[in-house]
Design a protein around this nucleic acid. Structure first.
Length: 220
DNA sequence: TAAGTCAAATCGGGTA
DNA sequence: TACCCGATTTGACTTA
């Protein structure tokens, strides 16, 4: 069971979560319940209202009437249909629907309340799943950035002397920028030129130097 | 047959 | 006061 077209308990979900398609579903695996048609005076008890109606107190010695209403498929279908059109009912609609379904208005009202609750619960579950996934990817991203920070800190402890690729002169770290595409350190020709005049450091290799980094990047 | 699931119904509080 | 909502209870039904 478990979809809207046919299922009495299918949930209509409209959650707007990127990358999530609303999979309604599943629930009520056991809705192949015995269709006790509460509208039929089968047990000779009720005509208008199925159970718990105001006027019917238990008649002694009679066949025990079902204690709990199970809506027929047709009733559920009509209720679902009307729920799809409107998630709340005004008193007029409620009365009309109740008459149509041969239920008490209160029962229609309760059905809509429970239906709204189920919809909300389902939406909350889906949001929860989505947020879990967000948390996972953000944790991963955080780890990656932490590693990067540590690597950069290591560079600061023993400041590398980087040769300008343009002038072959050592340049200060302040003249370096990060290429946003390939995430390597690089320098602008202007910075390299100015650094050439001031720096006197001995060259050493750096794994972050822009050797072979992305050539078409703007920062490169 | 006990445990689990689903949905109808109830209860109590908040609100327009 | 009627209505809604969240929490809870209750009973029908399924499943392991």
């Amino acid at each position: 069971m478990g979809d809207f077209g046919g299922s009495p308990s299918g949930l209509e979900l409209t959650i707007a979560v990127p990358g999530l398609s609303s999979s309604s579903g599943s629930e009520g695996g056991g809705c192949n319940v015995r269709e006790l048609d509460i509208n039929l005076p089968a047990s000779g008890v009720e005509e208008e209202f199925p159970m718990g109606s105001v006027e019917e107190e238990e008649e002694e010695g009679g066949t025990p009437r079902p204690k709990k209403l199970r809506l027929s498929k047709e009733q559920s279908r009509l209720l679902e249909e009307s729920f799809r059109q409107n998630h709340t009912l005004n008193p007029k609609q409620k009365g009309a629907l109740a008459t149509k379904l041969k239920l008490r208005p209160r029962q229609v009202e309760v059905w809509f309340q429970n239906r709204r609750a189920r919809t909300k619960l389902k939406q909350t579950e889906m949001e929860c799943e989505y947020l879990k996934r967000c948390f996972g990817s953000l944790t991963e991203e955080n780890r990656r950035l932490q590693r990067e920070v540590e690597e950069l800190r290591a560079l600061r402890v023993a400041p590398p002397t980087i040769l300008s690729p343009h002038t072959r002169q050592p340049m200060p770290a302040s003249a370096l920028t990060m290429c946003p595409r390939c995430e390597r350190l690089t320098s602008t020709p202007r910075a390299a030129a100015t650094s050439a005049a001031t720096s006197t450091r001995v060259p050493s290799a750096s794994p972050f130097l822009s050797r072979g980094h992305h050539p078409s990047s703007a920062a490169c």
